[in-house]
Simulated assay, not measured.
Amino acid sequence: MGILPVIEQYKGELEAIFKDLHAHPEIGFTETRTAAVVAERLRAYGVDEVHEGIGKTGVVALIKGKGGGNRRVGLRADMDALPIHEESGLDYASQTPGVMHACGHDAHTTMLLGAARHLAETREFDGTAVLIFQPAEEGLGGARGMLADGLFERFPCDEVYGLHNWPSGQPRKFGIVKGAAMAGSSFFDIHIKGKGSHGAMPHESRDPLIIASSLVGDIQTIVSRNVRALDACVVSVTQIHAGSAYNVVPDTASLAGTIRYFKDEVCELAERRMKELCDGFALAYGVEIELKLRNVFNVLENDAELSDAYMEAAGDIVGAENVVERDEPVTGSEDFADMLRVVPGAYCTLGHAGTVAVHNPKFVIDTGILPVGASIMARVLERRLPLAG
């Protein structure tokens, strides 16, 4: 089958939309321009309903198929950018200093717009397409914001699908993991309040730097000496902040980082041990240590049956030889997981010619992926809502 005809016809327009979105990136919950572009395009395509301001800056559109059935299938794309200064050298690079689409959400948004145009023009399905344009995926809780705003109460879905570009250098390669596919994640902040002193008289201090340095090492034992070898978990200290002068032992120090996991009970264990370590260090050194933990991403769980359906739909577009069921999940996180906790569905990766990793200032997405991703999203909906006869 290949790329769907409507999408093939308008692929030049899709590339223009993508380049415009890429040049005007917006951080999570500030995607007002992006949301306005999305809403304007959807109305121009003739969708049945457009709802704005869902979860602050999210957009939801409805398209009714020819069949008039009651089943509903959701398709979701994220819209936000990252606080990264772009170094791609593209002629359509970000015009906003310090903000960049370094994860390809501009492409995901464009793909869903391409699917919307096809579905609105053809309507060869029985039921309703629910198109979800989500803000703030990058750790700011955009999915949870839309859910709290009544996403699936206002726009019920029987199942929901999403995708992410994959800069693998393998264009059109579709990959999916059944079950736990992406890690959950908690972020932590540790603030140590010690006692400062002159750098020449450290015996008068309760040095928070010594405590912070020891904590960094002991936090690594949470996984190596507490988590079962067969249960994957990654605890990373990614920030340490303290001091402002060469000759002063500071009063305070701060640490921050993440816990990545595939089982909720493993996360609970890691969080409990971190709290116990902080409490123990506070007692041992006679200082105050405050630990703040916040769960940011749930484990992303792909429904096995719907993963099969997604692979079959992708095979129609890219060929069965380019569809791969993967064995190993990834330790990265994705807040589409929150939607999948409410509605069953599946999330895939789609390879493209780029090879620079996401979240890199030199990241470049291959625009050839746009009609492919748009076609896969439209096709899975058509397959899941088939017309009778």
Rank of each mutant, 00 (worst) to 15 (best):
K178P: 03
S224N: 08
S375R: 00
L283S: 13
A36F: 13
V177M: 12
I259S: 07
G127E: 02
V59F: 09
I365H: 05
K178N: 11
G114D: 05
A148I: 05
D189T: 12
D218I: 15
G69I: 04
I365Y: 11
R123G: 04
E305L: 13
T109F: 00
D78A: 15
Y310Q: 13
K275M: 12
G104P: 00
A314Y: 02
S333C: 07
H191Q: 14
C278I: 07
I27K: 08
V372Q: 00
G114N: 06
I219R: 03
A270R: 02
L381G: 03
A183D: 01
K56A: 15
G280T: 09
G2H: 06
V60D: 01
H105M: 01
A304M: 10
F152S: 00
C103Q: 02
I376W: 00
G345A: 03
C157Y: 06
P25T: 01
L385V: 06
A357C: 15
F188W: 06
T252F: 10
C348Y: 04
I192A: 00
R43Q: 13
I132V: 10
A313P: 02
K362M: 14
M79V: 03
A143V: 02
L300D: 07
L119W: 03
K193V: 12
K362G: 10
E290L: 11
A93K: 10
R43K: 14
D106E: 04
R383N: 12
H24P: 13
E382K: 05
G46P: 08
G175M: 08
D80W: 02
